[in-house]
Amino acid sequence: MTISPIDLTQRLAGKVAIITGAGSGIGRATARRFAAEGATVVIADFDAAAGQAVADEVGGLFVQVDVSDQEQVDAAFQTVFEWYGSLDIAFNNAGISPADDDSIETTELPAWQKVQDVNLKSVYLCSRAALRYMVPQQRGSIINTASFVALLGSATSQISYTASKGGVLAMTRELGVQFARQGIRVNALCPGPVNTPLLQELFAADPERAERRLVHVPVGRFAEPEELAAAVAFLASDDASFITASTFTVDGGISAAYVTPL
Rank of each mutant, 00 (worst) to 15 (best):
Q70E: 15
T156L: 06
G38Q: 06
V186P: 10
L109T: 10
A53N: 06
V58C: 05
P193M: 13
L109F: 13
E201K: 13
I18C: 01
H216A: 08
L120R: 07
L12W: 12
I104K: 09
F234H: 10
D117F: 03
V177T: 13
V123Q: 14
D101T: 00
F203K: 07
N187Q: 07
R139T: 09
A210V: 03
S241P: 00
N144W: 11
V219W: 13
A245Q: 07
V63R: 06
Q113M: 06
V67E: 11
T9S: 14
T30P: 13
S141M: 03
V177L: 14
R11G: 02
Q72E: 15
V123P: 09
G25H: 01
F222K: 02
A44K: 02
G85K: 01
A75D: 14
N187W: 04
Q158H: 15
N119Y: 09
R32Y: 12
D66F: 00
F222A: 05
L151F: 10
F77V: 07
T145M: 01
A50E: 08
V135Y: 10
E37M: 03
R185L: 03
A76S: 15
I142E: 11
F34C: 00
A55L: 10
P5G: 15
S4Y: 12
V41G: 05
P261N: 05
V177H: 11
T30W: 08
L151E: 10
Q137L: 01
R212W: 08
C126P: 11
R221E: 12
V58I: 06
L214T: 11
V215H: 11
Y258E: 14
Y133V: 08
A129F: 12
A230Q: 15
A48T: 05
S246G: 12
E226A: 14
S255P: 12
T145P: 02
E57N: 02
P98S: 07
T106I: 01
E108C: 01
G14F: 08
V123T: 14
G192H: 06
A76C: 13
T260L: 00
K114S: 07
D100V: 03
A146R: 08
M171D: 12
D238M: 02
V186E: 12
N144T: 07
